[in-house]
Amino acid sequence: MGYRISIFVLLLGAWVVLSGKFDAFHLGLGVFSALVVTLLSQDLLFKDRKKDLSVRLSETFGFIGYVFWLLWQIVLANAHVFKLAMTREGQKEMSPRVVKLKTKLKSDFAKFVFANSITLTPGTITIQIKKNQFLVHAISEAVEKDLLSGEMEERVAAIFEPELAT
C-alpha cells in the first residue's frame, strides 16, 4: 500500500510540474490520470516489494549524497578530458586499455549505478557487464589503478547493500 501511495505522489508531482496550472480542473485531471495509471501499472516501477519503504527512503537519501560526490567526480573527469584533448602532454599520456573488474554487488540497480558512475568518472567507461564481471575501457595507467582500488564500489555498496560493505 505504501508503495502505491508513493507511486501516486510521484506521478502527481510529475503532472503538476509539467502542466504548470493550478486550477481545479487541471488538478482534478491530474489526480484522475495519476490514479488510473497507479491502479493499472503500479507493479512496473518498484520490483522488489519485500523491502520496507523506510529502507527505500534511506537508500534515496544516501543516493542524493552520493550524487553530489559523483558531480565532483564528473567535474574532475571533464578537466581530465580537457587536458587530454588540448595539451601535448595529454596526448602522450594516453594509453588506452581494456580492464576486467570483478564486483561484489548483487542487485541490478546497484550494478546500474556502479556502471554509470564508472562511465562518469575520469578516464573510464563500462563496456560490458556479465553477471559480476565488468569490462571497462580505461584511458591511461593511472586511471586503471584508481579504478582497481575500489573506492567507488565501497560507496555504492554502503548505500544499496550495507551488509556487503567493509
Binding site: 541490478d108 550494478k111 560490458q128 557487464i129 556479465k130 553477471k131
Partner: peptide, 10 residues
Amino acid sequence: SSRKKGAKAS
C-alpha cells in the same frame, strides 16, 4: 555466449 548474458543482465 557473453552477448546473450550481457543482454539479459541489462
